[in-house]
């Protein structure tokens, strides 16, 4: 039986299979409409996350399965002081697979170690959010036809943004990927990640101004500066609107550059960009459902063995 804690839990070959399945689901949804008949997904969300939870629920419902769960810690037994280990032991009796989001880093890993059913990490604090990374990879692969040979700009909060860290870790496994890391000085990528890129000989540069590098990019991954990751309100206010992608900046970009964003978007992408065919962040949400459908099928299959 397999779990998903980290996007790197799957090899490049396993990811290819997963994405092929996701694309097949996209093209032949009827074929999979009853693939999970009689199966139950538990969504154990200890902190609010409308988007990820709905995406998981949509994925299971589209596969013909059913869903139960809770969407905040106060409505769960955690409010009474129950440990994650005990909760998953009980949930294992009620469901066939579990998606867990928790504000504490490593909580889904603790759950997986005690679980009788596959556990998917649906986000653990600022640590990992593997299904977002799978979503990003599937979107890039589907829209660009491949996951290597590109220059990707990652812009915004590169310090606390877990989606960025996971995406970098996932993309370094593909050939000829060049990173341009665009952030204010205070929100640069953590040193361990910089060291990793250097040690691996991956080409990257760190810049502050987005305008300077727009013409070079094949992909632009925008991120939100997340209020919940700051201990200091003043820093958040100062940095939250540091980057705003607008029509004018898009004029300098390649004709086939893609703009991605894990959403929710606040001010970092102006709504005037939404109608640009290069803006694929809402398509990304759709691919998020397909990749979660493929993941549920793959992990349920692994639980049979």
């Amino acid at each position: 039986m397999r779990h998903l804690m980290n996007p790197l839990d799957f090899s490049v070959e396993e990811l290819e299979k997963l994405f092929d399945l996701a694309n097949d689901i996209e093209n032949n949804p009827a074929k999979y409409a009853h693939a999970c008949d009689g199966k139950i997904l538990a969504t154990c969300f200890y902190e609010p996350s409308t988007r990820t939870r709905l995406s998981f629920e949509s994925a299971m419902l589209r596969l013909g399965g059913q869903v139960l769960g809770f969407s905040e810690a106060t409505s769960s037994s955690a409010a009474k002081g129950e440990s994650v280990s005990d909760t998953i032991r009980v949930v294992s009796c009620y469901a066939d697979i579990c998606a867990m989001r928790h504000p504490k880093e490593g909580a889904p890993m603790v759950a997986a170690s005690k679980s009788k059913i596959p556990v998917i990490n649906a986000g653990d604090g600022g640590h990992q959010h593997p299904t977002q990374t799978l979503t990003d990879l599937l979107t890039i692969r589907t829209k660009k036809g491949q996951l290597g040979n590109c220059t990707i700009g990652l812009c915004g909060d590169l310090k606390f943004g877990r989606t960025v860290h996971s995406l970098i870790n996932a993309l370094v496994r593909y050939e000829n990927v060049r990173f341009i890391l665009i952030s204010p000085e205070e929100l640069r990528i953590p040193s361990y990640l910089r060291d990793k890129l250097t040690d691996m000989g991956v080409e990257f540069q760190e810049v502050i101004k987005l305008e300077d590098v727009m013409p070079e990019l094949d992909l632009l991954y925008m991120t939100r500066v997340q209020k919940e990751r700051f201990f200091n309100e003043e820093d958040y206010v100062r940095l939250k609107d540091f980057y705003v992608l607008n029509k004018q900046k898009m004029e300098n970009a390649k004709e086939d550059m893609l703009v991605l964003h894990p959403l929710p978007r606040v001010n970092e992408i102006s709504v005037e960009v939404d109608n640009d065919p290069r803006a694929v962040y809402f398509d990304q949400a759709q691919y998020g459902v397909y990749v979660r459908m493929a993941l549920i099928l793959t992990l349920l299959e692994s639980a049979k063995n």
Partner: peptide, 13 residues
């Protein structure tokens, strides 16, 4: 020592 780590709230781990 990470205050965001699960070990910070689940003492038996």
């Amino acid at each position: 020592k990470n205050p965001r780590c699960i070990t910070s709230i689940e003492q038996e781990l």
